[in-house]
Amino acid sequence: MSRLFIFAVIVSFVFGTNGVLAQSFDTRATAAYVFDQTTGTVLLAKNEDAPLPPASMSKLMTIYMAFEAIADGRLVVDALLPVSAHAASYGGSSMFLDTTDRVSVEDLLRGVIVLSGNDASTVLAEALSPDGTEPGFARMMTERAKQLGMQNSTFANANGWPAAGHRMSMEDLGILADRLITDFPTFYPLFAETEFAFDNRVPSNKRNRNPLLTLGIGADGLKTGHTEAAGYGLVGSAKQGDRRIIFVITGLETQAVRAEESERLVNWAFRQFARKDVARAGTRIAEADVWMGNSVSVGLTVKEDLSLLVPILNQGEVAAQVVYDGPVEAPITAGQQLAELVITLDGLPEKRLPLVAENDVARGGFKTRLRTAAQVLWTKFVPRPEQSPEGA
Score class of each variant (00 low, 15 high):
residue 288 A to M: 03
residue 381 F to D: 11
residue 332 I to D: 04
residue 31 A to I: 15
residue 64 Y to E: 02
residue 179 R to A: 10
residue 140 M to F: 04
residue 27 T to E: 04
residue 123 V to P: 00
residue 150 M to V: 00
residue 58 S to I: 08
residue 170 M to K: 03
residue 344 T to R: 04
residue 34 V to W: 09
residue 193 E to C: 12
residue 57 M to A: 05
residue 185 P to C: 00
residue 281 A to K: 15
residue 351 K to Y: 01
residue 77 V to I: 12
residue 253 E to P: 15
residue 122 T to A: 12
residue 74 R to S: 04
residue 102 R to M: 11
residue 370 L to T: 08
residue 287 E to L: 09
residue 365 G to H: 07
residue 57 M to R: 00
residue 64 Y to W: 13
residue 116 S to N: 13
residue 303 K to D: 06
residue 57 M to F: 04
residue 28 R to W: 12
residue 276 K to Y: 08
residue 335 G to Y: 10
residue 387 Q to F: 04
residue 364 G to K: 00
residue 50 A to G: 03
residue 343 I to H: 08
residue 44 L to R: 07
residue 87 A to V: 11
residue 69 A to W: 08
residue 102 R to E: 03
residue 308 L to Q: 08
residue 316 G to R: 05
residue 196 F to N: 00
residue 165 G to L: 02
residue 366 F to D: 12
residue 3 R to V: 13
residue 9 V to S: 12
residue 323 V to A: 09
residue 85 A to N: 07
residue 273 F to Q: 02
residue 347 G to C: 07
residue 70 I to Y: 13
residue 179 R to D: 09
residue 105 V to A: 06
residue 324 Y to Q: 02
residue 116 S to M: 02
residue 64 Y to T: 00
residue 180 L to Y: 14
residue 190 L to T: 05
residue 337 Q to C: 08
residue 8 A to D: 15
residue 349 P to F: 01
residue 371 R to D: 13
residue 277 D to G: 10
residue 33 Y to M: 01
